[in-house]
Amino acid sequence: MNFGKRVKEYRLKKDFTLKQLAEKSGISASMLSQIERDEKNPTLQVACQIAEGLNTTLSTLLEERKKEEVIVTRKEERLIYIDEKSMFQRHLLSPSFSMNEIEFLLNIMPANGQSSVFPPHKPGVTETVYVAKGKLQLTLGDGDFQEVLEEGDSVYYSADTTHHFKNLLDSPCEYYVIIDSSKSSK
């Protein structure tokens, strides 16, 4: 199933009108309608805002899998979201089913690239970031916190604020992210 159809399915399951989802996500109702009809492909930032508005994860909106005891995801089978504007890649490494409260991601940032500003998650959601390759700058809020992370460094933070990543090198940066929604206010 594609992203637009999943958005519409979740919106209807929550009994939201397009206007209600627009208010919750900060995305216009007309843009949401175009996304649901697959007329527009959202940027990563917009997709994250929609997921937050629906009180779910982006991974859940990208694909639904049957919950099983043991799940092996082969490299060629993993969900990969590529932001066409920035070429930022988001690889889902953990299973994607609607009740999964932990997301394990590999993000690949192009040389000298930067992410969009990610919207705040619900209160209680945390993120842990580990830089596997490169040099990454993390900014939380309106610059309230800014830190440069080098290969092997990690950071843990409450993700209920806007956050932004920037690659400080002329080569791709690879970093892992764990998003923990298990203690969020739903």
Rank of each mutant, 00 (worst) to 15 (best):
E68K: 07
S158C: 02
C173L: 14
E36N: 04
L44H: 11
P119W: 00
V117C: 03
V129F: 05
A29Q: 03
N100D: 12
T43H: 03
Q49L: 04
G143M: 11
A51I: 09
F104K: 03
K135P: 15
R65Y: 00
E39I: 10
H91Q: 10
L93S: 10
R11H: 00
M87H: 12
D180S: 14
L106G: 04
K122F: 05
E9W: 05
E23T: 06
N55I: 08
Q114C: 07
P42V: 08
F16D: 05
P172I: 13
L169C: 10
K186Y: 15
K8L: 11
S94I: 09
L106T: 01
R37I: 00
D170M: 12
K85G: 12
I80V: 15
Y176V: 15
E76Q: 05
L79W: 02
V72S: 06
K85V: 11
S59Y: 05
H163R: 13
I102L: 03
R6I: 09
I102C: 11
K40C: 13
K67Q: 01
D144A: 14
D38C: 08
K8D: 13
S94E: 05
R78M: 10
V125T: 01
F97V: 06
G124H: 06
K14T: 09
E84C: 07
S59T: 06
Q45H: 10
E9T: 14
K122I: 09
Q49I: 09
G141C: 13
L12M: 08
E39K: 09
P120I: 03
H91M: 13
R37N: 14
Y10A: 12
G152P: 07
Q89W: 02
D170N: 08
Q114P: 10
S59Q: 00
R37H: 01
E23V: 15
G113N: 03
N55C: 15
P120W: 02
E84Q: 06
S96P: 11
M87W: 14
E151A: 03
T60W: 06
Y175A: 07
T128A: 10
S98R: 03
T17N: 05
T139V: 11
P110H: 01
D170T: 11
K135M: 13
L61G: 01
S116P: 09
K19S: 12
V131D: 04
D170I: 14
D160K: 04
L12R: 05
E76T: 14
A51Q: 08
I27S: 05
M109H: 01
R11N: 09
E101G: 02
M1N: 02
R65H: 00
R74C: 11
K8Y: 08
S33H: 07
F118K: 00
Q45D: 14
R6S: 15
E23R: 12
F3P: 03
K122P: 10
